[in-house]
């Protein structure tokens, strides 16, 4: 979900047709490559104790990898479902920001907007924003969206059914998949200086959040420490005047 390759270079030549074709190629590539990781989610959800049906429904409805992994992580840790749900939804908050960014380019209304909303996620935004011009953005966005939605739900089901038939998930190392997914999602933010604070501010927040969550684990119900760690982002909101 993070290693979305940079877009094809064909967009430079003829903006109208070639740009759109290159965008569709990007969309299909990202959709297939990232969609396969639904296998990992399906397996993780079964490991956490969800049924195959619950796993499949979660992928169909939520369709945002990090939130899904977060929820099943808390459930697997024997944690409070309310806190787990809240954490998962909060984590989905970044999709609202993507929507804000894409709204004018996609320019959808009515039932189209209701459908489009479901596929505004990390990968589709990455593909769309990598294109030049509105037609190419839309082509990239929707080709990634359709491919990824189909792949993610199919592979979720395969992963869940497969894991349900394997014995102890720990012998296969499946318990490491959850944290490894989060690490891979977080990595580019910690190593690139693209963020408003640069990478250093992000690393500081990450370290503080880890410390708070670990310190709170023995004293609070599972799921709550992760929510509590969100306070480490508050100083950004409280600072009276923003640097930039």
């Amino acid at each position: 979900m993070t290693s979305t390759r940079p877009p094809g270079s064909a967009a430079v030549r003829e903006p109208a047709v070639d740009g759109r074709r290159a965008a569709v190629r990007d969309g299909l590539g990202v959709g297939v490559a990232v969609g396969v990781s639904g296998l990992a989610f399906g397996a993780a959800a079964i490991t956490a104790g969800l049924s195959v049906t619950q796993t499949a429904v979660l992928s169909l409805l939520a369709f945002t990898g990090a939130s899904q992994f977060a929820l099943v992580g808390v459930i697997g840790g024997g944690g409070g479902l309310a806190a787990g749900t809240l954490g998962a939804v909060l984590l989905g908050g970044r999709n609202a920001l993507y929507g804000l960014r894409l709204a004018s380019a996609l320019d959808v209304r009515g039932w189209r907007r209701l459908l489009t909303a479901q596929v505004v996620i990390d990968e589709t935004t990455a593909v769309a924003t990598a294109q030049q011009g509105r037609a190419a953005m839309r082509a990239g966005f929707y080709s990634a969206a359709v491919t990824l939605y189909a792949m993610w739900n199919l592979t979720t089901l395969l992963g869940a059914v497969g894991a349900a038939r394997l014995g102890d998930p720990e012998t296969l190392g499946l318990d490491v998949i959850g944290p490894a997914v989060f690490l891979a999602l977080l990595w580019p933010r910690l190593t690139s200086a693209r963020a408003p604070d640069g990478a250093r501010g992000q690393v500081g927040v990450a370290a503080a959040a880890m410390a708070i969550a670990v310190a709170a684990t023995p004293v609070l119900p599972p799921g709550v420490p992760v929510m509590l760690a969100a306070v480490t982002a508050l100083p950004a909101l409280l600072s009276r005047k923003a640097d930039r």
Binding site: A66, F69, A70, G73, G77, G78, G79, G87, L90, L91, G93, R94, A96, L97, G178, P179, F182, L183, L185, L186, R189, L190, A195, P196, D197, G201, Q202, V205, A206, A207, A208, A209, M210, A211, I212, A213, V214, T217, P218, V219, L220, P221, P222, P225, V226, L228, A229, A230, V231, T232, A233, L234, A236, L237
Partner: peptide
């Protein structure tokens, strides 16, 4: 703020899932 919230949540999830079993 909206940029940092996912960083905080993802980091906390990594730490808890790596080091904790329940409480």
């Amino acid at each position: 703020f909206t940029d940092l919230v996912p960083v905080a949540l993802l980091s906390a999830l990594i730490a808890v899932q790596a080091l904790a079993d329940g409480r």
